[in-house]
Simulated scan of single mutants.
Amino acid sequence: MPVTTDIAATYRGPGRVVRRLLDMGQREDRALAILMAACALVFVAQMPRLAREAHLTGQELNMLLGGALLGWLIIAPLLLYGIAALSHLLARLVGGRGDWYGARLALFWSLLASSPALLLHGLVAGFVGPGPALQGVGILWLVVFGWFWLSGLRQAERPTA
């Protein structure tokens, strides 16, 4: 299925989409592509906020964008691999029987699938600025991301037949 269709399907049943991705077999290149696409979308979501910040503070926009690009496309993927490993270890403590790949895929897919809410958060941060609207959209994204991640991790840590 196309990625956009899978993202829409994730809002209806995140566990089913992650199970389908896991059933396609272990492909680290697929997991890395999902992660890099998610990180690229997070970077794009930061652009309106950074443009607003540059305008209001007089800072150079290119410097802000360069820092965000470095952070989201170089550093964040490394940190997300570590977070996925920790989530797998925690799942093992409570009886999970999945593998490292499943934990990575669940985290990376939840970040990519929740990107529409994150893009909305970036627009609100850029056009409205700090306030209740930004906090509300941020909480919405956090809830959606957590729902997707926990549902995906539950599927990934189930015993395989």
Score class of each variant (00 low, 15 high):
Arg12Thr: 06
Gly25Asn: 14
Ser110Leu: 03
Leu89Met: 06
Arg16Trp: 00
Gly102His: 11
Ala54Cys: 04
Val17Lys: 05
Ala54His: 06
Trp149Ile: 12
Ala33Gln: 14
Tyr101Gln: 13
Leu22Phe: 04
Gly13Gln: 12
Asp29Tyr: 00
Tyr101Asp: 11
Leu50Cys: 09
Ile74Glu: 06
Arg52Trp: 04
Asp23Tyr: 03
Leu118Arg: 09
Phe43Asp: 01
Arg158Thr: 14
Ile83Val: 14
Gly25Gln: 03
Tyr101Thr: 10
Arg30Cys: 01
Leu150Trp: 06
Val124Thr: 15
Gly13Pro: 00
Val143His: 07
Arg154Thr: 04
Glu28Phe: 08
Trp141Ala: 15
Leu56Arg: 09
Leu90Lys: 01
Arg97Phe: 00
Ile74Lys: 05
Met36Pro: 02
Leu89Arg: 08
Ala113Ser: 12
Leu93Phe: 08
Leu78Ser: 12
Leu111Glu: 13
His121Tyr: 15
Thr5Lys: 01
Ala68Asn: 12
Ser114Pro: 06
Val124Glu: 12
Trp147Tyr: 13
Arg20Trp: 09
Pro77Asp: 12
Pro48Asp: 10
Ser110Phe: 04
Gln26Cys: 14
Ala85Lys: 04
Cys39Pro: 04
Glu28Thr: 02
Phe127Thr: 15
Leu90Phe: 11
Met63Pro: 01
Ala54Thr: 07
Ala133Ser: 15
Arg104Leu: 04
Leu50Gly: 06
Pro14Asp: 00
Phe148Pro: 08
Leu123Ser: 07
Ile75Tyr: 12
Ala45His: 06
Pro14Leu: 01
Val3Cys: 07
Phe108Arg: 02
Leu153Cys: 00
Pro132Glu: 10
Met63Asp: 05
Ala33Cys: 05
Ala106Glu: 03
Ala76Cys: 00
Val144Ser: 00
Met63Glu: 13
Trp141Lys: 01
Gly131Ile: 15
Leu86Ser: 09
Gly66Ile: 02
Phe148Ala: 05
Leu140Phe: 15
Phe148Gly: 08
Ala106Trp: 07
Ala68Gln: 06
Arg49Lys: 14
Leu50His: 08
Ala84Met: 00
Ile34Pro: 11
Val137Cys: 14
Thr160Met: 09
Leu70Asp: 05
Phe148Gln: 07
Glu53Lys: 09
Leu61Pro: 01
Asp6Trp: 02
Gly71Met: 08
Val137Met: 08
Leu153Pro: 10
Ala51Pro: 05
Gly66Arg: 07
Ala9Glu: 15
Leu107Glu: 05
Arg97Trp: 05
Tyr81Phe: 13
Leu140Val: 11
Leu93Val: 11
Val44Gly: 02
Ala103Ile: 07
Leu86Glu: 02
Ile83Gly: 02
Ala113Val: 09
Met24Lys: 11
Phe108Gln: 05
Arg97Leu: 09
Leu61Gly: 02
Ile139Glu: 00
Ser115Cys: 13
Gly131Asn: 11
Ile34Gln: 01
Thr160Leu: 09
